[in-house]
Design a binder for these strands. Structure first.
Lengths: 197, 197
DNA sequence: TAATTGACCAAACAGTCGTTTGGGATTAGA
DNA sequence: TCTAATCCCAAACGACTGTTTGGTCAATTA
């Protein structure tokens, strides 16, 4: 139901919101990017804020769906954690602009729009916490504060958009492996993976 | 040299930037907060942007100085890491408003002002990386990608301002301990601290 | 062919923005 | 006492904001 023009406008908005930030991007900027008069945009969007809400909503929903899919498998807890980290980093790097808008600009939404995103974000933390609680129950993880640990892991992953560059040394998967290796084995532990394919 | 009024204005700005964001805060808002006409503020500040720069600069400088002080001690690498995490989280929680402005709003600075903060932030990452490289050299840490691991730890710590509430269960020090326990020992390792005082 | 719809423009709306200016007060120094 | 600096106000500056309105043109439908 979303026309080409609507997608085009959303893409332009993502690009500009990422480059300049939500407030520093004017409706005029978006109109210029797609080659329309700014008034004409209002045939496709309800408001500038609604545009941001849609972008953020789509982004957080993808993260949630991916993590729920991992939880629904019969993997072990450590396997789930590795897979979840891999998913999160892969998705956030390959949709870097959208992820940046979600993590950096969603705060600019007023109520009640902001609450929609906040609720979905809370849900995401919940799912991560479930992974850790599962491992705690099975004895695979030693975790006394599953939620705090979940927030630590999520924080590390959500920081990636701030520093990852395509031109860098490591692929998203390699970064994910460095991350989950530390989360699972720690820095001082002995059982670290050797060189493997 | 900074007068009372200047400090008062800076404090008002921090409070409002944290609550509403930099762009959503008008010079009028700040003037109202300190009980002046907005034009009168310009006897104390060069520009709204300069106000943000000062706030961010002071914040990142404190983080840098603290971490440098830890590096200058003769602690072991694991001890330095624990201390650095403790410092970072304690500081960011007790100056939550300022930290939020640094981490969330500094992006709104235009060049070359943004580059000043970026350089100091890069320096901070460097210092963290040094901690890890030290541990790698001494054999205390098993780290193949010290910089990526530093960014992981820093990400976890820099996310705290997004979720920590004074009303929550854990003190900043307790959160720091959960964090560094995972960083050092991992979730699957056996040598976790028991209940200790 | 006639009527209707959707896409789009140009202009206006009603503000708000950060910053500058010129001039009163009040205070401090010479 | 005269001078100079400091503090602050009131007003204006020009530019820009997101959104609405009325209308034109082409394509689609009946």
């Amino acid at each position: 139901m979303a026309s080409n023009r609507q997608k085009e406008i959303a893409l332009a908005a993502v690009k500009l919101f990422e480059q300049k930030g939500y407030h520093a991007t004017s409706v005029q900027d978006i109109a210029d990017e797609v080659g329309l008069q700014k008034g004409s945009l209002y045939h496709y969007i309800h408001s500038k804020e609604d545009l941001l809400l849609q972008i953020a909503h789509e982004a957080i929903t993808e993260f949630n769906d991916n993590l729920q899919a991992v939880l629904d498998t019969d993997m072990s807890a450590p396997e789930k954690l590795v897979k979840a980290v891999e998913n999160h980093i892969t998705v956030s790097v390959s949709n870097m602009e959208t992820t940046t808008v979600l993590l950096r600009e969603a705060f600019s939404l007023g109520d009640p729009q902001h609450q929609v995103i906040q609720d979905l974000t809370d849900k995401y933390v919940d799912l991560w916490t479930q992974v850790l609680e599962e491992g705690a129950r099975s004895g695979e993880f030693h975790v006394r504060e599953p939620k705090v640990v979940a927030l630590a892991i999520l924080g590390a992953c959500n920081w990636v958009y701030r520093w990852y560059r395509q031109s860098g040394q490591l692929t998203p998967s390699q970064v994910a492996r460095v991350f989950s290796d530390m989360f699972l084995n720690g820095l001082t532990s002995d059982n670290h993976p050797g060189v493997q394919q």
